[in-house]
Write a protein that binds this DNA or RNA. Structure first.
Length: 278
DNA sequence: AGTACCACCTGACGGC
DNA sequence: TGCCGTCAGGTGGTAC
């Protein structure tokens, strides 16, 4: 193994916190497993800056002395209930994640907000950059409406899927990532879905027929579910998936071709030009 | 309406 | 070793 391969291998291993739907679902499960029904002693803020969309005081007041009693998620947004009509809403931007920890030497770097429980453990909102958000809302459903979020990509039945996209036009890549129609799919997983469906990213969405739409809907569900079952670690996805090989020039897992990279709206898009023809 | 591009932020990495 | 340019999975706004 040469140096470049070793380097790629290491970055693949340590790469984490890719907050699209599967990642946020794993954060939610992590919170559900560790952080529920424990009395909150207080909240500490560390360079949280513009992450906070509610004042520190509002967040602290909503959490202190309370317990998280429920969790929910829509797309890439997650919610923890702290009281009657009080929910902590979180979005993780490009680098955020949640981490439950006990010993001080386990505190993650870049813990922007630390929720401390009376028993001595903590839940960190970790983010290297300040692109995510945290706020208090009285109802996740209102929050969803206010933010113009479409139905969750994992929950949406086919009839709703078809309806919410019926007048939609443009590249299939952009359509999949439009959070106002179907929420939760980002740049990474849209690449995987298109690879599985063998659509070129620039395929016009409006050209898809009923059968193609049905297949797309099924594949969205399958890909997201598979990722969640593997803790949203791209390197653990099945061998016939694109994501473990999402790198320019790498061998396509389905044919003898090589993976290409193009730009769409300034985002890096990876696909196999032999499998995914326009 | 769809697309391109910039801005928001800041760490990580490659090249020199 | 260090400086500098480039890039990154998020969203939102603007201009065409």
């Amino acid at each position: 193994m040469d140096f470049v391969s070793i380097h790629t291998w290491i970055t693949t291993l340590v790469r984490k916190a890719m907050p699209e739907l599967p990642d946020v679902e794993v954060f939610r499960q992590h919170a559900e497993k560790h952080a529920m029904n424990k009395t909150i002693r207080g909240v500490a803020y560390n360079d949280a800056g513009k992450l906070l969309k509610s004042p520190e005081q509002t967040i602290s007041r909503a959490l202190k002395g309370q317990k998280f009693t429920r969790s929910s998620r829509t797309g890439k947004h997650m919610f923890l209930k702290t009281g009657e009509d009080r929910w902590l809403a979180m979005h993780f931007g490009m680098t955020g994640y949640l981490k439950y920890w006990k010993d001080t030497d386990k505190r993650p770097d870049f813990s922007k907000v630390i929720i401390g429980f009376e028993e001595g453990s903590n839940l960190s909102f970790v983010s290297k950059r300040k692109l995510g958000e945290m706020k208090i809302t009285d109802d996740p459903e209102d929050y969803r409406r206010e933010n113009g979020l479409g139905m969750d990509a994992l929950d949406i039945p086919f009839s709703e899927f078809r309806k919410s996209l019926e007048d939609k036009r443009g590249s299939i890549k952009n359509v999949l990532m439009d959070q106002s129609r179907v929420s939760g799919i980002g740049n990474i997983y849209s690449d995987e879905i298109l690879f599985q469906e063998k659509w070129h990213p620039k395929q016009r969405f409006e050209k898809l027929d009923e059968e193609a739409l049905r297949s797309l809907h099924k594949t969205i569900h399958r890909v997201l579910k598979t990722a969640i079952n593997r803790d949203a670690r791209p390197s653990d996805l099945p061998a016939n998936y694109l994501l473990p090989n999402r790198e320019e020039g790498k061998k396509c897992p389905a044919c003898e071709g090589k993976i290409s990279k193009i730009k769409i709206n300034g985002r890096g898009v990876y696909f196999c030009p032999d499998c995914q023809k326009l």
